[in-house]
């Protein structure tokens, strides 16, 4: 208890703020209890028995297994992603190929249609022009006959 009294005495000598503290009896008591409580806690914690944890091999194995499982997981996720990507690309390739074949077929059909139209046009032109081109000869043949 004398140590507590000394503590209170010191607290009372530490300037105007501390004199104000000394006037407040409840505050002084609270601070004294707080100090004693911290001291008791610290003494108990400081003298407690401590368990020394030795590094065990299992900890190393646990880390190695965790690392291996982590690698497997990452590889699995990555390969799944690659597989999905490949599937997607294959589908896209098939669609593109089908589209190309269709376009090619349409182009060929259009070409055939154009050729047919051109031939028909030439035939019609030739059938119309030939009589007109033979008109002078026909007139000559008619003239010779009259003579």
């Amino acid at each position: 208890m004398s140590a507590e009294k000394d503590g209170m005495k010191k607290m009372g000598q530490a300037g105007s703020m501390d004199s104000e503290t000394a006037h407040d009896a409840e505050l002084g008591a609270a601070l004294r209890h707080f100090r004693l409580s911290v001291h008791a806690w610290s003494d108990a914690a400081y003298s407690r028995p401590r368990a020394a944890a030795l590094p065990t091999r299992s900890a190393v194995w646990r880390k190695a297994v965790s690392l291996a499982l982590g690698c497997v997981l990452v590889l699995g996720v990555a390969s799944e992603g690659v597989y999905q990507h490949e599937q997607h690309m294959a589908q896209e390739r098939e669609v593109k190929l089908a589209r190309q074949i269709e376009m090619q077929r349409q182009a060929e059909a259009q070409k055939v249609a154009e050729e047919d139209a051109l031939l028909a046009h030439v035939d019609s032109d030739v059938s119309r022009e030939v009589p007109a081109a033979l008109d002078p000869l026909a007139s000559l043949v008619e003239g010779d006959g009259s003579k």
Binding site: V38, H39, W41, S42, D43, A45, Y46, R48
Partner: peptide
């Protein structure tokens, strides 16, 4: 002990 006590009261973590 005194340094330990100060750090204990500051951190409240034994």
């Amino acid at each position: 002990p005194q340094i330990y006590r100060f750090l204990l009261s500051s951190t409240r973590d034994v």
